[in-house]
Design a protein around this nucleic acid. Sequence first.
DNA 1: TTGAAAGCGCTAACAC
DNA 2: GTGTTAGCGCTTTCAA
Lengths: 341, 341
Amino acid sequence: MQTPTLRDVADAAGVHPATASRALNPATRGLVNAETARRVMKVAEGLGYRPNPIARGLKTSKSGTVGLVIPDLTNPLFPPIVRGIEDVLEPAGYSGLIVNTDNDPQRESAQIELLRSRQVEGLIVATALIDHPLLARLRREGVPMVMVNRRPDGVDLPSITPDDAAGIELAVAHLVALGHTRIGHLAGPLTTSTGVARRRAFRNAVRDRDLDGDPALVVTCEHWTEESGADALRELLDRRPDVTAVVAGNDLIALGCYDVFAERGIACPDRISVVGFNDMPFLDKLAPPLTTISVPHQQIGAEAARMLLDAIAEPDRAARSVLLPLSLVLRGSTAPPAMGA
Amino acid sequence: MQTPTLRDVADAAGVHPATASRALNPATRGLVNAETARRVMKVAEGLGYRPNPIARGLKTSKSGTVGLVIPDLTNPLFPPIVRGIEDVLEPAGYSGLIVNTDNDPQRESAQIELLRSRQVEGLIVATALIDHPLLARLRREGVPMVMVNRRPDGVDLPSITPDDAAGIELAVAHLVALGHTRIGHLAGPLTTSTGVARRRAFRNAVRDRDLDGDPALVVTCEHWTEESGADALRELLDRRPDVTAVVAGNDLIALGCYDVFAERGIACPDRISVVGFNDMPFLDKLAPPLTTISVPHQQIGAEAARMLLDAIAEPDRAARSVLLPLSLVLRGSTAPPAMGA
DNA sequence: TTGAAAGCGCTAACAC
DNA sequence: GTGTTAGCGCTTTCAA
């Protein structure tokens, strides 16, 4: 036996399919005799009827799906975000279609095309490319969209991001409280809004506190990876061997620092302190456990999904942007500077 | 302007929609005059026509989607599997719909219902619940399905799993080569096929090598978590303080051991060696870096997707099960037993 | 309150 | 080789 259709239910209940449709849909149930409605619902239940959202979608041009555009699910940053998104989407009757772009603009366009052809009702975009004509086009075409982890540059789009500036403030304040004055920053790639924002915040924090503002103390990484982080730290150490603390652009970059520490026999935190950013899983198991800025990823995802659902419901509502507060997670990779350092 | 439909293309090309359909579909393009086909395609291109898979699906009753049932995307085990799946699905024109079950049977049923109502053409199931009437029902209803990371118990279903027995063999052989004879095992929950398989493999390995076969050396964890792993190790140490090496059911359990080492001041690997299982990311940054069994997760996902696509194409093909070979990743958490231990 | 009829966008017989 | 017709399963006018 095939899975029953609305017709089957209608026939079995002795009503017209249209009536069955009305009875089964909570929104239109009021239009139908309560008694009839009850009967139809019972029959549907008995037959194991499940509405076919494809057919419904064809009629209503609503697919009940939204697209999630992320760089790479394998990056530990994203699973909690996706989870947060799904947790909100599901009760709302929506499903998420995930695509990975690997931060390749071509792939990104292609994937977004794919999602659009699949009739997604909106997009949650978490890729980090800072500039994108595609964005403007989607915007113009009226595709509901929200950005995650990045501020839309120039385009008026809702976004939900961690408060990068506040996070960096937290990190610098902590190091200063420990007594550091020569603090370096390993910035993320400046092609990403996050990299830019954190670097700016770092510079401001240093300036506000009259710390050593030598530009040599800020090194920019090519990628958000351990390798880039390691390269950057090597460069920093070559330029300013007297640096006593480092604010890493994110945890991966901080992890790269650990490699350099091992390679050069540098004691952390005795000789150099490090602060990460994001609080990926298992950082507490490192030696030393990494002090870092904790970002509520799952909450970010949930909030993004809520905003997208809002945008779908009310396309004309003004774009609202949310900055989520962060916190410092104190662990073992930070300590007062070595005496005489 | 709305997104153009097949009709628009047909009108613009001066042909009937059916002809346009044939011209646009590579499979039926042969039925149409090459010249006409070219013209239609050009017009479609020019108009930015994208076929609507919902409408197509309604007609062909193919949704182009498959369901991915996983416990929790947030568990580092799954992202690479999902990525592997997506990488195979996408070029085949399929998309994956992910649901998280949190290993809650109720939620699992509900989520599978959801997927079915979304007309998925098949299911990739990676949840670990060992016994499930649902499975048999789906099987009966002819839903193409493949299991990942678990062997279907009793049901004749394709599955793709790491070769758990071989992995445990590798771990035990390594420890024995180092000189260990009193080796403990912290087994995963016996409600999971993986937990059972690894425990059995451990016992076999111990028996085959005439090692200490004291049942007290095997402790079962309640969950695949750090906490459970820590609890289990404490129990093991209480029962057999002379144990010199531990094979953990997976990396998370091994991580729990690290906590106990810290808590009790036990030197690893000097006093106790540990081997993990899975090779999650960043294990090389631990102190000591964790020796573990590497599982090709992404490959598992890719293989699973390929098998599902096959099953969808040829529903009657016999279920094939694949065991993927594993390898030992030697790092710092294993060493010869302390002298006199 | 319910039924009839049309149609969402596409494809598959079947005819020409 | 191409057009005609019908219909996938559902919702939504419109009329009764």
